[in-house]
Amino acid sequence: MDKLGTVAVVGLLILSPWTALQAMTPVGPGFTPDRPASLFNCQVPLIKLLASSNQAMILAEKVPADKLEITIEPRDHGVQAIQLFDSRQQASPDTPGAGHLGWVMYDPHSGQLLDNSADEQHPRQLTFSPQYGKQYQQCLQKEQRCAAILDQMKLGAIIADSPKYVVRGKGRAYFHVAPTEQCVNESQFVIPNDKVQVVGFAAFEPVEGEKNDYLLVGYGNASGWINVDRLAPLDEICQDAQANAEAMMAKTASPAAKYLVKSKKLYFYDSPDPLCQDEGGKFIVSGDNVAAKQSQAYQQFLFVSYIHPKTGDKTEGWLKAEGLVAR
């Protein structure tokens, strides 16, 4: 999954020792905030299954999986009617059927793929790669298991004292569609130092057999549960950075200094940590003058005050020292 921009969406968390919660209100089983119609993107292995089949038009046109598009219409007993298209060919008024490859029927229960494009009454059984057939079946089974878990969960609305969390540790932190390892969504993840938003619901009890705690968080267009071992409250990170800076400044004698902004745009930070940028987006620009209480930087930040030349308004905060030059 490509990196996504941070947005505020609902969050769901299993209670953990360091999370402060307020206002828990029960919501009943079967409720899941922003639950998608499909928990996993099972169309990916399905398209690979279809592209590997001996369906006549797919073979004749040599359609690769990345050029095969499908639409699915549900039939009785879970059977899927699948319309096939070659994305390399575009329909037009002169060629309305361009790109259309026909219809097939797939039965998830039996694993049979039938081509009824020529004769709906006497469909032809198709063959396909067992590898992709297995992957698609596993995806469908996983979706059924995780949907059942979500249906039985009991939630309560809460407010977390730290609405934002930062991804910690190494490598990808995967989203889960339910708070258990068996429901990991390997197509969606965040990486260290990404910020995720948590505001939402608490589960009254963990999934049976699950020992880990999870948060349901949002990041860009993605949302899901993440193991709390991979997350740290942003408020605590910024508070610790500020406390450490104040302790250092109290011990170190350093004269005040004046600086000129050399960066085109220099943002304020609430604490001397790259994760703690002012949420209001406050910044100053090249040529502005600031005064620092101490000339010695802490973690490559300086605490400064800025007086607006026209309004006289005063703004204080941390700036990256690399964007300043001594006057």
Results as ranks from 00 to 15, higher is better:
L155T: 14
D151F: 02
L113I: 02
L84M: 02
D86C: 07
A148Q: 08
Y136E: 02
A148L: 03
Q80C: 08
H77T: 08
M153V: 09
D161L: 12
K154N: 14
Q125G: 08
S117D: 07
A160F: 09
Y106I: 05
I82Q: 02
T127L: 12
W103I: 05
V79C: 00
Q90V: 13
Q125A: 15
Q121Y: 14
N116D: 13
F128R: 00
Q131M: 12
P93L: 02
G99W: 02
R124D: 11
T95R: 15
A160G: 11
Q90M: 15
G102Y: 01
F128P: 03
Y136N: 01
T127E: 08
I149P: 06
Q131Y: 15
H77W: 10
G78Q: 01
L150S: 01
A157Y: 01
Q112H: 14
R88A: 04
D94W: 10
L113E: 05
Q131P: 01
K142E: 04
L150V: 08
R75K: 13
G133R: 10
D107M: 01
D94G: 11
A118N: 12
I159F: 13
C139N: 05
L101N: 02
L84A: 00
H122Q: 15
T95I: 08
S117G: 03
P108R: 03
A81N: 11
A160S: 11
A98H: 07
H109S: 14
D119G: 12
Q112W: 09
T95G: 06
Q112S: 11
L155E: 12
L126T: 01
Q135N: 07
P130F: 02
P130K: 09
G102M: 01
G78P: 11
S110L: 06
T127V: 10
I149S: 11
I158G: 06
S110Y: 00
A157R: 15
Q137G: 07
M105S: 14
Q121T: 12
Q152K: 15
L155G: 08
C139H: 05
G99Y: 03
L84Y: 05
Q121K: 15
G102P: 03
Q135L: 12
M153D: 09
L150P: 07
S87F: 03
V104I: 10
K134S: 08
Q90K: 15
G78Y: 08
A98C: 08
A118H: 09
Y106L: 06
C139W: 07
W103G: 09
G78N: 08
S110Q: 11
M153I: 10
Q138S: 11
L101Q: 01
S162P: 03
Q141S: 08
T95M: 13
H100M: 10
H77G: 03
R88S: 04
Q125Y: 05
R88F: 07
A91M: 03
G102N: 05
Q121P: 04
H109D: 13
K154M: 13
S87P: 05
P96N: 04
T95D: 14
H122P: 06
G111K: 01
H100N: 13
P130E: 06
R124W: 11
Y132I: 10
R75I: 00
G111C: 07
M153T: 10
G111N: 00
S92V: 03
L155S: 13
G102V: 02
S110F: 00
S129V: 05
S117Y: 03
R124V: 15
D107C: 04
G111H: 00
Q135S: 06
P93T: 04
P130S: 09
P93Y: 06
Q121H: 14
R88I: 06
C146E: 03
V104R: 02
G99H: 04
L114Y: 05
A160R: 12
A118E: 13
T127D: 09
